[in-house]
Amino acid sequence: MIEPVLSRSSSPPPISLPALFGQFLRFGCAAFGGPVAQIAMVRAALVDQQGWISKERFNRLLAVFQVLPGPEAHELCVHLGMIARGRLGGVLAGLGFMLPGLVLMMVAGWLYTSVVSGIAGIGGVLLGVQIVVLAIIARAVVRIGQHIIEDRLLAAIAVAGLAAALAGLPFWITLAAAGACYALWARPALVALVLAGAAALALLLRGAASADPIAVAQAPATVLALFVAGLKGGLLTFGGAYTAIPYVRADTVGRGWLSDATFLDGVAIAGVLPAPLVIFATFTGYVAGGPVGALAITAGMFLPAFAFSLLFFERLEAVVENPALHRLLAVVAAAVVGIIAATLFELAAATAPRVTQPPVGLVLFAVGLVAAWRLKGLWVPILLIALGAAAGALLPI
Rank of each mutant, 00 (worst) to 15 (best):
L395I: 11
T284R: 03
A135H: 06
L235G: 00
L80D: 03
V125Y: 12
G51H: 11
L17I: 11
F302P: 06
G233V: 07
Q38V: 09
A211G: 13
R26T: 12
I269R: 07
Q50L: 10
A108G: 09
V248K: 05
V141N: 01
Q50C: 05
F312M: 14
R354M: 14
R60S: 15
L235I: 05
L190P: 02
L6K: 07
V360L: 12
L95F: 10
G118M: 06
R60I: 04
P323W: 06
A352D: 04
Y182G: 14
A186Q: 14
I245Q: 00
R187K: 10
L236T: 13
A120V: 13
A209N: 14
V132W: 03
R206V: 13
E75A: 13
W52G: 02
A335R: 00
G89E: 01
G388L: 06
P274S: 07
I297L: 09
Q146A: 09
G254D: 02
F280C: 10
G256H: 05
D251V: 02
I149N: 06
L166M: 09
S10W: 11
P358D: 08
L162E: 07
V194Y: 02
I173W: 00
A135C: 08
R255I: 02
V42Y: 00
P353H: 05
G361V: 08
L68P: 05
L175V: 15
V64F: 11
V331I: 14
L154A: 12
I269G: 09
Y242T: 01
V133G: 04
R43C: 07
I136W: 01
P4A: 05
V272A: 12
P274D: 02
